[in-house]
Computed example of a mutant assay.
Amino acid sequence: MTQFRFAFLLACAAALSACGGDKSRAPGASGDDTEALPAPAGARGSVTGMPDEPGPGVVGPPKPEETVALDAEGNPVLPAEDPLAATAAPVDPNAPPTDIATNEPTVDDAVAVIRDYYAAINRRDFAQAYALWSDGGRSSNQTPEQFAAGFADTTGVSVEIMAPGRVDAAAGSRYVEIPVALTATHADGRQQRFVGAYTLRRAVVDGATADQRAWRIGTADIREVAP
Rank of each mutant, 00 (worst) to 15 (best):
H186I: 06
E81K: 05
L70A: 00
P97A: 12
P62A: 11
S158V: 14
P56G: 10
S134I: 03
G156C: 07
G207D: 13
R44S: 05
T98C: 04
F151V: 10
A89C: 03
Y130V: 04
A220M: 04
Y175I: 05
I161R: 09
E81M: 11
G150P: 06
A95R: 11
C12Y: 04
E145N: 13
Q192C: 07
A119G: 13
F6W: 01
A88G: 00
A89N: 07
A18P: 02
N103I: 01
L70G: 00
P61M: 09
D82K: 15
T34F: 00
A69R: 06
A72L: 08
K63P: 08
P105H: 06
F194I: 14
P79S: 03
F147P: 09
N141M: 09
R115P: 00
A18D: 02
D22S: 04
A36R: 02
A11K: 02
V159E: 08
N75P: 03
G137Q: 09
T48W: 04
A197K: 15
A171K: 15
D116Q: 14
P105D: 06
D109Y: 11
R174P: 04
D22N: 02
A220Q: 11
T199P: 10
G31D: 03
F194L: 15
T154K: 13
M162T: 13
P54W: 07
P90Q: 10
R213V: 08
G20K: 00
A86E: 15
E73C: 05
Q212V: 10
T87G: 02
F151Q: 10
G136C: 00
L37K: 01
V159N: 08
N122Y: 10
V205N: 12
R124L: 11
A184G: 12
T48P: 00
L10A: 05
D125I: 12
D116A: 14
N122A: 07
C12A: 01
A131T: 11
Y117I: 02
P79A: 05
T155M: 12
